[in-house]
Amino acid sequence: MKTELSKKRRVQIAHLERVFWIEHEIRAGRYPNTRTIARHFEISTKTAQRTLDFMRDRLRLPLGYSGERRGWYFTEPTYGLRAVELTEGDLVAILITERLARAYRGLAIGRQVEQAFAKVLDAMTNIVSIDFDSLSEAYSFEANATVQISPEVFQQLGRAAKERRRIEMTYYTAMRGEVTRRRVDPLHMRSYLGEWYLIAFDYYRDGVRDFNAGRIQELTVLDETFGWPQGFNLAEYLDSGFAMVRGREPIEVEIAFDEYQARWIRERGAVHPTEQREELADGGLLLRMRVTALDSVKRFVMQYGSHARVIAPEKLRDMVREEIKAMRAGYDAERE
């Protein structure tokens, strides 16, 4: 099997070499034809003609034949084929994209990625061979579990946001377990950890809100258009939240990580745009940031167990205490 793959790879590389040599000769004004191509590469004139056909029909290069010069030329003088060199890192990036498409193929964006990637790969692998099986032996990829999104809903949301068209939707709010009918102005589509959110001005709440796109049960794009909300700054809005949870007033948060957990926190990038870090004398790390809601911060802190401690605000400290108390009560009840 590997021998067959190696032979196929050599054939594809030879084909690629002919394509770029012909392109170079044309740009040099030498009008190559099947005889000069066959003589240069020691191939048949039929093989040379197949390469020219590939350049014209598959690569869609503007090839024309000059009877006077008895050779091929570009009908658009400035047109040229640019060589693309792929490094090992490029191939790894392609592999991750291919695996990402597989992991998210059941979701709306996953299907689009897979379809788009298939088109690119189909065009590329006619002249470049990529052995995904060999790469997969060295690299693997795991995607987050995400909410299913209808491909039609995903595309409609994106189109409505680009065209500034108002929408009506039936939306399920998981926190309250209720379904409501909403009329909103779609402003932006935001991806967070694989989940897609619609940021929109909500007439039901009279303000900008975030909606998990996977919880939209029905959607109608209206003919009505809208303008950008006066005074609304998207970048500032995105920075104000933590894990896609937002409030109204800014809150200063301080979290201390012990020496053990600080080793991993230092390795990671900032968890929030406003984050500031301070090294502690005991080897720990103090993290400061400004958010507008505390529920998601509480969940963030608690995932580190005893290795993370809230310093401020006191409200967040109380929230963590209450959660620990409730958790303990649940475990104690199992003993009875």
Rank of each mutant, 00 (worst) to 15 (best):
M1G: 00
K2H: 00
T3I: 03
T3G: 10
E4H: 09
K7V: 07
R10K: 04
A14M: 00
V19M: 08
W21V: 07
E23W: 08
H24S: 12
R27H: 09
R30T: 13
N33C: 05
T34Y: 01
R35P: 01
R35I: 08
T36K: 00
F41N: 06
R50C: 06
D53N: 11
L61M: 13
L63C: 00
Y65F: 15
Y65W: 12
Y65S: 12
R70K: 13
W72K: 02
F74M: 06
P77S: 05
P77E: 07
L81V: 09
L86E: 13
L91R: 12
L91H: 00
A93D: 11
T97F: 11
L100Q: 08
A101I: 05
A103E: 15
A103G: 08
L107K: 13
L107Q: 14
A108R: 01
Q112Y: 05
V113A: 08
F117D: 02
F117W: 11
K119F: 08
V120E: 14
N126D: 15
N126T: 14
V128Y: 12
D133E: 12
E137F: 02
S140Y: 01
F141C: 00
F141R: 05
Q148L: 13
Q148T: 11
S150Y: 03
Q155M: 15
Q155G: 10
G158R: 07
R165L: 04
M175D: 14
E178V: 12
R181G: 04
V184N: 01
R190C: 03
I199E: 00
D202W: 03
D210F: 05
F211C: 06
I216Y: 01
T220L: 00
G227T: 10
G231C: 02
F232L: 11
N233T: 02
Y237R: 04
Y237D: 06
Y237V: 02
Y237G: 04
D239C: 00
F242Q: 03
V245K: 05
R246K: 12
R248A: 15
V253W: 06
V253T: 07
A256C: 07
E259Q: 14
R266W: 10
R268E: 15
V271P: 06
T274W: 07
E275M: 13
A281V: 11
G284S: 04
G284Y: 02
L285C: 06
M289D: 06
T292D: 10
L294V: 03
D295K: 08
S296V: 04
F300S: 03
G305L: 12
R309C: 00
I311E: 15
I324D: 00
M327H: 06
G330M: 05
Y331T: 11
D332E: 14
A333E: 13
